[in-house]
Each structure stands twice: as C-alpha cells, then as structure tokens.
Design a protein around this nucleic acid. Structure first.
Lengths: 230, 230
DNA sequence: TCCCTATATTTGTAGTACATAATAGCAAAG
DNA sequence: CTTTGCTATTATGTACTACAAATATAGGGA
C-alpha cells in the first residue's frame, strides 16, 4: 500500500476537520466573552437562551460550556447559571501534561525547555532575591548530606522549586510545578544519580557572594550532565 | 455586613466543588487510556458501551469525550468511533492563551517567562547551530535598516523566531509561537520602539565570533529595556 | 481485478422529561 | 431587629429517545 504517501500528504495538507457544532459554539462563546469584555463574576446567558440564540440544541451548548468549564474559564452553579471565572492559563496545561501520554521526542523537548528556563533564572534572581531566601535555600542544600537516594530526589525538587519561587513570578513557579512530573519521569530513566560538577551548596555560595555571571556559569555546570544525556 | 469574615472563611475552608459526572468520566477515561497504554490510532470503545459500562447516560460520556477531543487527545470519525490521537500538548495552551482574557499580572509574568527563555537559549544554540543558520539570521538582521516601525516589529519576531528554530527543539519553537500574541500585546502598550544597547546585528556577530558567555551577556543587554519596564 | 451499490454501524444533533441544588422570599421565633 | 426555617422558583445536571449524517464493510456485476 501507499500508506506512507498518504501519511506524508496528510501531514502537508492537514486533515479536513469537520467542525462539529460544539466546536463552533465553543468559538462563538469565546468571541462573546471577548466582545462583551466580561469581568470575572459576570454572568453568562442561560443555556436555553444560548441554544435558542445560536439555533442549536441545548446539548451542543452544554458540550461547549463543558469545555470552557474544564479549562477553568467559567464556573457554573445551579440556579445561578454560568459566570466568567478568573481564567487560569495553567489549568489547561495540566490536563495534557501526562508523561505517559507524551511521545519520547516531545518529552525530551519539554525537559530541555525546563533546563533552558533554569539557565535563564539568574537575572530575575539577582534582581529580587532576599537574604532570607538564600538562608532557606542553604538549609535545603545542607539537608542533603548522608541521605538515601529517594530523599535526594525530593530535596532536588525542593531546591529548584525554591529557586523559582524566589523569582517572585507566580506563573513561572506554577509552570515549574506542572513540569515536575516530567522532570521526575526523565530522571527515573537514567540510573546514575543526578549530580553535576557544581552542587547545590556551591550554588548557594555563589548567590551569596558571586555575580550574576558566576551563577549562570555555575548553573550551567550543575545541569550539564542533563544536557549531555539528551 | 460580615463580608470580610466570609471571605476569610472561604479562603481557609476552600470551596466545595461539586464534581459533575462529566468530570468524573473524563478522569476515568484518562486513566483508561493510560492503563491500556494505547498507542496513537488505537480505537476507544464506542459511546454507548462506555455509557453502559460507566453507568451514565451517553450525554455525559459525550461531554467528556468532547473535552478530550478539544485538547487533541482523541479524534472521532463517524462509524469508526474515537481513536487515540497523538496528544498535542500545546494545543491546549492555545485555547486559553488569549491576551484579552488574562489579567495584567499574569500577562506580565508570562512575558517575563519568555524573556527568561531567551536568556537561556545560549547553551542550546552553541551546541547545535550551523553556519547556514547564522547566515540566515544575518540576512534578517540586515533587513532592518531604514524600515518603518511596523516592519521592524515583524522583523523582530522573525529574528527571535529563527533563534528558537535554531535550537532544534520543536516544542520550544512552538511554545514561542504561542507566546507571540502576548509578546506583541505587551509591546503595543509601550510607545518607545523596542531596542536595547545590543542590536540584532551585534548578536549575529557574537554568534559567529564570540563565546557562549558573550552571547548571554549580549542577549541580556538586548532585552534589558524589557526587564526594566516590568 | 476493479468499480459500484447497498447496508450496517457509529457519531452528531434535537428534543423531552425529570432530578438536583441553590436562590430568594416570606414566615416564625428569639 | 436579627436569625432561623420553610417554600416556591429556577437553572443546571442527567437520562432517554429519535433521527440525520457519514463511512467502513460486504457483496454483486462488469
């Protein structure tokens, strides 16, 4: 068969997507939210009204609303109806971020993206970190002496998590939390314990006494084993 | 009124979330996909069977399936049923990544995240870039002379887009594309045209002749105006 | 072997009916 | 006057039926 050819064509042309009405209504609802410039807490029309206005069955409207609700864009309460929620960007991401469902290539790409982020943290850190932060970081780093491997992994996560937190960027921090499962998953696939030339205590030392550039170089060396494995 | 007390209580207790059956079924379907370790193209049971097996109406099953379909996790065709698709992680993100729906604080956080990424690109670039890439980059940079502002913005995007592309990390590149609207949106809110002490042509020069550290410093200076504005 | 057609099957949409929960209003109690 | 309890109302949540639309499969004919 010419399955390969078909596959190739499909990739170049893109599949014809028979838009269902639910897709349509979903888009229309998004536009509606935008056009009306609703604020969180503002109510949406009730389902029957939407259905009638759009000329579709209530079923279709419910499918569309169900999607928006899953993404945290709206909340629905009985009797009251649907109201616009504070859209949570990252909620959607969590839904598909399942290591077991992602192919290996993408998995590696995402892992790499995380490393890139860590490399770029330096500027935010040096602009915003406080002495207490460094103290806490040091405490975490000092916890690592003479501990078993499973503890080390947890501490590893705590240390890097604290770094993200110190940036003062809430979205960044949550983004990191979301990526944790993937990070852990990739780690389990290599036998050698995680460690570069520069360990956590050295990084703390750099934060306290070194320059921004020192930190970037230090972090690079710290993560180097990961880069090399990719 | 005791509104403040209510607010405080609500924060401590957390809201009760009345899980709908669709939420439940969605989760169960995810677990099913995982447990069966299905590969892309493998079929799912038909809706009526799922409904019967789960003890819910077909309506509820369809809501759950509709969500998964929106995220690109499954595809459904008439007569054939639903099949597992290659889950596209970033598709979900695009659904909520709408500058007009995101509050200002998150917007700034995301913009900052993008800057962090750009700062961290250096290592990937120096490991993977080819001479042709730099040539192309230079061509883009040289296009910028004596052009109007709207063209400059487009070129700005082209230049940085090329940088992401040169990392060889497809997910990273697509991630950047997704963030473009936000980037553009933030840019439009400042009057002063985008330019740091280091321009694109200087960055190209560094890539060709300089070291990794030079590039990091150069990129920092290039983006500094943005950092300062945040 | 190839093409065409009929058939069966599964999703997509519509519509009805009822359960469930939350709201508002009013009545009663303190 | 405030709080509590009851009741009616109303919008969502769920179930079920019916049918339209599309398409994979099988079977028949050249």
């Amino acid at each position: 068969m010419n399955e390969e050819l078909i596959n190739d064509l499909s990739k170049n042309l893109g599949r014809v997507k028979a838009n269902t009405m639910a897709d349509d209504v979903e888009m229309k609802l998004r536009q509606y939210l935008k056009k009306m410039s609703l604020k969180p807490g503002d109510p949406l029309p009730k389902e029957t009204d939407l259905a009638e206005a759009l000329g579709v069955s209530r079923n279709v409207v419910r499918e569309a609303l169900s999607r928006l609700r899953m993404l945290g864009m709206i909340e629905t309460r009985k009797r009251k109806g649907a109201v616009l929620a504070s859209p949570d960007i990252l909620l959607a991401f969590e839904r598909v971020l399942d290591p077991l469902l992602i192919d290996d290539l993408t998995l590696r790409d995402i892992f790499e993206l995380r490393l890139v982020l860590e490399m770029g943290l330096a500027d935010l850190l040096y602009a915003r970190m406080k002495d207490e932060d460094i103290d806490e970081l040091e405490k975490i780093a000092n916890n690592e002496i003479n501990k078993d491997k499973s503890f080390l992994v947890k501490n590893e996560i705590a240390f890097h998590g604290k770094l993200y937190e110190m940036t003062g960027n809430g979205t960044l921090k949550r983004f990191q939390i979301m990526l944790l499962p993937i990070f852990a998953y990739v780690i389990t696939r290599v036998d050698k314990p995680y460690s570069g030339k520069v360990d956590h205590r050295r990084l703390v030392d750099i934060l306290r006494n070194g320059t921004k550039e020192d930190f970037k170089i230090g972090m690079y060396e710290h993560l180097k084993p990961h880069f090399d494995r990719l």
